[in-house]
Design a protein around this nucleic acid. Structure first.
Lengths: 209, 209
DNA sequence: ACCTGAACACCGTTCAAGT
DNA sequence: ACCTGAACACCGTTCAAGT
């Protein structure tokens, strides 16, 4: 029975990495972010806590990689959304895909925003994944600005994404119920409809919004 | 030297409550939410951890009371902001007071939103404090809707507050830098300017936003 | 080389014991 | 009645020791 100590090589490092990430994901999904502990993840894959530190810098690092995968999946979920001339319609389609994706992964998605990478050492690969999601929103906003690469879509995509995050995070933590009886979806739809109307009004009147 | 055990009565329960709340506030303000532990608060007021549980249900309860005070102060900071016929101007004045208040209490204000009251047992007095802040925003939005008590200002105030929360929370956690080079203030100003333009456009065109 | 598991320095919370 | 401080059941992280 001494076979449990020392080198095991039941799994390669890559396999272990996958197992750990998958186990972490299942733990968060099932029991929430608070249940994600080094001991829980290690236990779920049948290894000791120390082994995790052979795969990841620390628990923050594990979460960062988990979040990276989720950003990829969000990009995939939004990619291919039809884009037409009606900006409002474009955005509503994206919004519903966005909310539906998040809704099915509430605990996991919360982690993306709750988790603060310490010492602002955000990896480049992580920034790229964020940028990809934003660029999809930019494409959908383009018709309202009559240009694809301008400052308008660029800024508006970021303002809307940050704002949607606010609405959704309040909603998923139950704080929105303290403010309103409307649903997260209704609030988000109002934001987008009104904001897009604002963009178009500014264009018509020639105001600099 | 046996005077340190048992009944002390150096302070009344009310005094102790004040001391604990004040100490907690200083700890968060100085060292961030992670430094707020029962042992730290107890140590700062010269009592043992157990004593805190004579004053508060638990640490969550202490935070809830701390947040309540902060909401009151936010209400005071926004109250008395001049309200005119120009909705956009009204909101910009409020926005700058809002951001300035938060900016000086970043760690504390983060706690208001990061802290989730478990079991959705939000006290009534807490809801009232939230409502008071919202009502100030409603007043500022009224001219755009040509009415004070309608559904329009009611809904828009909530949508804007939730959206601003998203922008600010991403900004204060450093995540906004990952998305844009603009400041929190610039993002917030764009949101408000565009959203208000949207409200007014919808009114003119008779659209139901 | 890889993995363990005890150890370190922490948590929130409880509660018997003391004054 | 009030307060203590040890105790319980946890944390993240490290690292000497084993294979």
């Amino acid at each position: 029975m001494e076979c449990k100590v020392g080198r095991r090589s039941d799994h390669s490092k890559e396999e272990l990495y996958e197992l750990a990430l998958q186990a972490a994901r299942e733990i968060i999904d099932a029991d929430g972010p608070r249940a994600l502990t080094a001991r829980n993840v290690a236990g779920a894959i049948g290894y000791s806590p120390g082994t995790l530190y052979n795969l990841f810098e620390n628990l923050d690092d594990l979460i960062t990689h988990l979040n990276g995968r989720l950003l990829d999946e969000m990009g995939d979920a939004l990619a291919g959304t039809p884009v037409g001339d009606d900006t409002s319609e474009n955005l509503m389609l994206l919004l519903h895909r966005y909310l539906s994706f998040i809704g099915e992964r509430a605990n996991l998605w919360n982690l993306v925003f709750e988790h603060t990478i310490p010492g602002d050492r955000v990896p480049t690969w992580y920034r790229r994944k964020v940028e990809k999601v934003i660029s999809i929103l930019e494409g959908a906003l383009a018709p309202a600005f009559h240009c694809i690469d301008g400052e308008g879509p660029n800024r508006s995509a970021r303002v809307l994404l940050a704002s949607l995050h606010g609405i959704w995070s309040l909603g998923s933590s139950g704080k929105l119920d303290m403010m309103t009886s409307e649903t997260t979806t209704e609030m988000a739809e109002n934001l987008i409809a009104t904001y897009v109307a604002g963009i178009e009004a500014c264009r018509e009147h020639g105001n600099a919004c």
